[in-house]
Design a protein around this nucleic acid. Structure first.
Lengths: 118, 118
DNA sequence: ACGACAGACAAGCAGTTACTTGACTGTTTT
DNA sequence: AAAACAGTCAAGTAACTGCTTGTCTGTCGT
């Protein structure tokens, strides 16, 4: 249950990292429409097939995409659930400040440190 | 309005990249409670002050954090609005498949490709 | 069976990231 | 004024990224 939190953190690392790339995001967008092969993903992307495969591997490593070989093509599809951890982390932070004493905390800190004025 | 979309993309890159690091995420979590100085951020983190400064710079570059020097200390606080772009991107993708023809699309693709069965 | 296709695998490479240390600059404290 | 404090800046480094090319393995159409 402690290990769980570490794994969780590692997975957030991987998910955010995966999404921190325009090409990878565009693949996810493409897959939102429906499953696609590696070469279909590659088509609009101006890079080698091998590069696309590597990107897909990154997306697989964080669980955002699952693949399955069918004949000589590899079909890829998104795994919606893989994004919830990242979404939740963001939502939690947002609640953390929007709800709570953030305005209050800021004001107090500003006063205490003499915000803008001598 | 075309350039806008590119900037947007670059900013998503930076935001996701910023969040793809446990130390940086923990700083954001800490700042959710309220503003903090560099050394306060550094305290639980087992790395040099200089390293923490560099992390803060990354968070500043994507707008997630703003800082202001007060005397010899630099106070940091979160900028809630900076996360909305990333949140929206995820929410949009989620809608993209959950709502729409995803189940349908998957089923059709499976049938067309002979899912699991010869 | 043959060549073309879709991808797999490995090595290599330029650029970036996440640190470090050490010397330096302002700011408080005493 | 001197010492301690909170950062700052510049190099340097080891590991990681995002590609490439070339070779090799299966699969499909003919």
């Amino acid at each position: 249950m402690l290990k769980h939190m570490l794994d969780q953190s590692v997975n957030l690392d991987r998910t955010f990292q995966a999404l921190a790339d325009k090409s990878r995001r565009s693949m996810v967008e493409r897959l939102t429409v429906g499953p696609a092969s590696i070469s279909q993903l590659a088509e609009p992307l101006d890079m080698s097939l091998a590069a696309v495969v590597q990107h897909v591997q990154v997306l697989e490593a964080c669980g955002l995409v699952t693949t399955k070989k069918v004949g000589r093509t590899r079909m890829c599809r998104i795994e919606p659930s893989a994004m919830t951890a990242a979404e939740r982390w963001m939502a939690d932070r947002r609640r953390g400040w929007e709800d709570r004493l953030n305005q209050l905390g800021d004001v107090l800190a500003d006063v205490a440190l003499g915000e803008e004025a001598p």
